[in-house]
């Protein structure tokens, strides 16, 4: 039994490489999309605001699974064929980018107008005000919501099993079918719990770090 667990764990761990790749690619790029989207949404450029509102409305209002199917099975109909990983990564970045756009927008808008005024009378321009004064304070405020999304992303990443990506969950499922054993599912669950716990810990440390000033 012990040997079996080690064996299957190794197999599932191999699958988790895809999960980790997807996780980090999505985390990095969706945050970038989120910052850009949030700055666009507060830009007071009506057309840009409308486009971004449409974007967040669609991608937060429809199932991620539907978006994933659309990218993988739907786009080929339009002549765009993506491999499973790019299709999944693209979908996740756009989907999480929509959530981060709204989270970061809310965070930026929660910063007191007086901070902008103080920066202005000290001679700071828009870029300096945002990068030195507003965004650093926003980071602290959006940490809890971002932490939630970071944990959601771990679990959502399992959706890619349905478009045939050999991720953590799919490896477990293959092992379950192959060995007619429930153990691989339990191992997979343990893996997910470990990953989520690490993320929770990282964010708790970040929140502690930022709590020095309040």
């Amino acid at each position: 039994m012990f040997d079996y667990i080690i064996n299957v764990s190794g197999y599932i761990l191999e699958g988790s490489i895809v999960t980790f790749q997807l996780y980090f690619v999505t985390a990095i790029f969706s945050v970038i999309v989120g910052i850009a989207g949030a700055l666009g949404k507060i830009s007071k450029i009506p057309l840009l605001e409308s486009i971004l509102s449409l974007y967040t409305w669609i991608f937060r209002g429809t199932p991620l699974l539907l978006q994933l199917f659309f990218a993988y099975y739907g786009l080929p109909v339009l002549g765009i064929t993506l491999q499973p990983f790019p299709a999944a990564a693209l979908t996740f970045i756009i989907n999480y980018g929509a959530y981060f756009t709204e989270i970061f927008r809310g965070g930026i808008e929660s910063i007191d107008e007086g901070q902008y005024e103080a920066a202005k009378v000290l001679g700071m321009n828009y870029r300096q005000t945002m990068s030195r004064i507003v965004i650093p304070q926003t980071v602290k405020r959006v940490l809890p919501a971002t932490s939630n999304e970071a944990i959601n992303l771990v679990k959502d990443s399992a959706l890619v099993a349905v478009i045939g990506l050999g991720d953590l969950l799919r490896s477990a499922k293959v092992a379950v079918t192959r060995d007619f054993s429930i153990v691989p599912f339990i191992i997979a669950a343990v893996f997910y719990l470990i990953i989520s716990s690490v993320i929770v810990t990282v964010f708790r440390k970040l929140e502690e770090k930022y709590s020095v000033y309040e």
Binding site: Q115, E117, A118, V121, I133, E214
Partner: peptide, 18 residues
């Protein structure tokens, strides 16, 4: 012109993260 002036607000408006 504004560079010549400094301003102090009723609500302080210090940068809390610094």
């Amino acid at each position: 012109a504004y560079e010549k002036m400094g301003m102090v607000f009723q609500g302080f408006n210090l940068f809390p993260h610094k």
